[in-house]
Computed example of a mutant assay.
Amino acid sequence: MKKLALLFLFAITTASAQKELPNINLKSLENKSINVKSDFTENDKIYVYIFWATWCAPCIQELDAINDVYTDWKNELNMEIIAVSIDDARTGKRVKPMVNGRSWEYTILLDTNQDLKRSLSIANPPYTIVVKNGKILSEQAGHAPGSENEFFQKLKSY
């Protein structure tokens, strides 16, 4: 029974490690259409998709904390953070002022209809997906204050 459970766990881990981003277009803050699969394809570059919302306090804490060290991270790794807002039509008007007020240097995409969120079976923000060479390497739900260094060490292992 233990062998079967381990085999099942290995199969789930392997299957999720081979998962790819869906072919979905989102809008940038400048209203430009961006395809999450084909527009972020630089070979061996790490793309970190962080799903967030203006009404989500842990999301804002995570994005603020990473923003403080983001320049250092980019100097050490070939990486880019894509902050995907899942704010709907009602709260979406708060995204641009919040981003400008916080001086975040991330690529910001708007998943207003939550198409990308749904296609990846994401329940609640904050939710982070790490992608390299078109493959999803890891997924993480939630945020713990101070966990940025541990997350960066994980990124360096890719």
Score class of each variant (00 low, 15 high):
Ser119Trp: 12
Gln114Thr: 07
Leu110Thr: 01
Lys93Glu: 15
Trp104His: 00
Met98Cys: 06
Asp115Met: 06
Thr107Pro: 00
Leu116Glu: 01
Ser103Asp: 14
Leu110His: 02
Thr128Asn: 05
Asn113Val: 11
Thr112Val: 13
Glu105Ala: 06
Val130Met: 10
Asp115Thr: 14
Asn100Glu: 15
Leu109Asp: 02
Gly101Leu: 02
Ala123Ser: 13
Val95Asn: 02
Thr112Leu: 06
Pro125Val: 15
Val131Ala: 08
Asp111Thr: 06
Glu105Ser: 07
Leu116Asn: 03
Gln114Glu: 11
Asn124Ala: 15
Asn133Ala: 10
Lys96Asn: 04
Asn113Cys: 01
Glu105Thr: 11
Ile122Arg: 09
Asn133Cys: 13
Ser119Gln: 15
Asn113Pro: 03
Glu105Trp: 04
Asp111Gly: 08
Ile108Leu: 04
Val99Ser: 03
Leu116Cys: 05
Arg94His: 09
Gly134Glu: 01
Tyr127Cys: 03
Ser103Thr: 08
Asp115Leu: 06
Thr107Lys: 14
Ile108Gln: 04
Asn133Ser: 14
Pro125Cys: 15
Leu110Pro: 07
Val131His: 02
Glu105His: 06
Ser121Asn: 14
Gln114Ala: 09
Ser119Thr: 15
Leu110Ser: 04
Lys117Tyr: 12
Ser119Cys: 08
Arg118Gly: 12
Ile122Met: 09
Trp104Cys: 07
Tyr127Ile: 08
Lys117Asn: 10
Gly101Ala: 00
Val130Glu: 07
Thr128Ile: 06
Gly101Met: 00
Pro125Ser: 15
Val130Leu: 09
Glu105Met: 05
Ser121Asp: 11
Ile129Val: 11
Leu109Lys: 02
Asn100Ile: 11
Asn124Thr: 13
Lys96Thr: 13
Ala123Gln: 10
Thr112Gly: 00
Thr107Gln: 08
Asn124Cys: 13
Ile129Lys: 02
Ser121Leu: 13
Asp111Glu: 07
Asn133Glu: 09
Lys93Leu: 10
Tyr127Asp: 04
Gln114Trp: 03
Leu120Phe: 01
Val95His: 01
Arg94Lys: 11
Asn100Arg: 10
Trp104Met: 06
Tyr106Lys: 04
Met98Phe: 10
Pro126Gln: 13
Gly134Val: 08
Lys132Glu: 08
Tyr127Asn: 11
Asn133Pro: 08
Ser121Ala: 10
Thr128Ser: 04
Lys96Arg: 11
Arg102Tyr: 04
Lys96Asp: 06
Asn124Gly: 02
Lys117Ile: 12
Asn124Pro: 00
Arg94Phe: 07
Arg94Asn: 14
Ser103Met: 11
Met98Ala: 06
Val130Ile: 14
Gly101Val: 00
Ile122Asp: 05
Leu116His: 05
Lys117Asp: 07
Leu109Pro: 00
Ile122His: 02
Arg94Ile: 01
Ser103Lys: 12
Asn113Ala: 12
Lys117Gly: 10
Thr112Cys: 09
Ala123Ile: 15
Arg102Leu: 02
Val131Ser: 03
Asn113Phe: 11
Lys93Ala: 10
Val95Arg: 03
Leu110Tyr: 07
Glu105Asn: 11
Pro125Glu: 14
Trp104Asn: 01
Gln114Leu: 13
Met98Gly: 01
